[in-house]
Design a protein around this nucleic acid. Structure first.
Length: 287
DNA sequence: ATAATATGGTGAT
DNA sequence: TCACCCTATTATC
């Protein structure tokens, strides 16, 4: 389930488990064997993340992972299990092991290769010092729909289909609003909200975007799988706020979910906080 | 058993 | 806009 929060969570976990240790790097599946050899037996310095990209630094060689839609990591302590399925890359160290399956990208880069990737990514809400300015510059100069811009990793890095749908709902923004028609105050609210939601996602390992008041009481403190979001994957179900049937349509080959009532077209009113005013608190929900 | 689907991205047309 | 890559899980026959 890889949106930005997943990658940052992995980076943190891998850093904690493996940094400072000698790593045995292999490719049970074989497709990464040659590159694995170039970092095998090195000491891992650190693991970093930007957007959906993961970087494991071994001196001047950097393993770059992008999980894509299907990629997954598994990990554990002790000796690794017998390989089952297609394990592209496996690490083993005295502290344990980790496997990755199905990544879109699994390659060894030099630092300039990393720079090239970072250069084409927009600001990441999960950065230590989140900087929204560059994203706003792109949005306010574009006539493309805001729903598309949010998914464009060169505008904002780390948002995926869930955060996209949910952040638009939480700020009552019609998904097809051209970027240039979005009020700056609305964008500032959306960005601040993204920072909170995604940080909460890193902590919990899931994407919970509903406010407690909009979902049934949590059972044993656990938010139900079907109660975690407002519109994502809820096509045809009643909106949690107004009961209108949630709609879904394909936009650039990705399914877009929204409530046609809560996110209705409305006249742009410069200088007003069109977003969360009077509707949702400007804080991330407690999970 | 087979098909559809999924939180993503690239490169050709 | 489309074809395609990657893998696992869920839905349908």
């Amino acid at each position: 389930m890889p949106e930005g929060h997943t990658i940052h969570r992995l980076a943190r976990r891998q850093h904690r488990q493996f940094a400072g240790h000698t790593i045995t790097v292999s490719s049970p599946q074989g497709r990464f064997s040659a590159a694995a050899e170039s970092v095998d037996g090195r000491v891992l310095d650190r693991v970093t993340a930007h957007g959906k990209h993961l970087f494991a630094w071994f001196g001047d060689r950097v393993v770059h992972i992008h999980l894509g839609l299907f990629g997954k990591y598994t990990a554990g302590e002790g000796t690794p299990p017998h390989p089952i399925g297609a394990i592209r890359m496996r690490w083993t160290a005295v502290t344990g092991w980790t496997d990755v399956r199905g990544p879109t990208a699994c390659e060894v880069l030099d630092p300039s290769g990393v720079e090239a990737i970072l250069a084409r990514l927009g600001p990441d809400p999960l950065a230590r010092q989140p900087q929204s300015a560059a994203a706003w510059t792109r949005i306010t100069r574009s006539k493309a729909p805001i729903a598309g811009l949010l998914m464009d990793q060169s505008v904002v890095a780390g948002i995926g289909n869930v955060y996209r749908a949910e952040i638009l709902f939480r700020h009552r923004v019609p998904p097809l609003t051209p970027g240039r028609e979005l009020a700056e105050t609305t964008w500032e609210c959306m960005w601040a909200d993204l920072v909170g939601l995604m940080r909460s996602g890193v902590r919990s390992g899931r994407i919970v975007t509903t406010e407690p008041v909009h979902r049934p009481p949590a059972i044993r403190g656990r938010v139900g799988r079907t109660d975690a979001n407002y519109v994502y994957r809820r096509a045809g179900e009643p909106c949690r706020i107004c009961s209108t049937s949630v709609r879904a349509e394909l936009l650039s080959a990705r399914r877009l979910y929204w409530c046609p009532t809560c996110q209705a077209e409305r006249r742009h009113e410069p200088g007003t906080v069109a977003g969360m005013a009077g509707r949702l608190p400007a804080v991330a929900p407690s999970v």
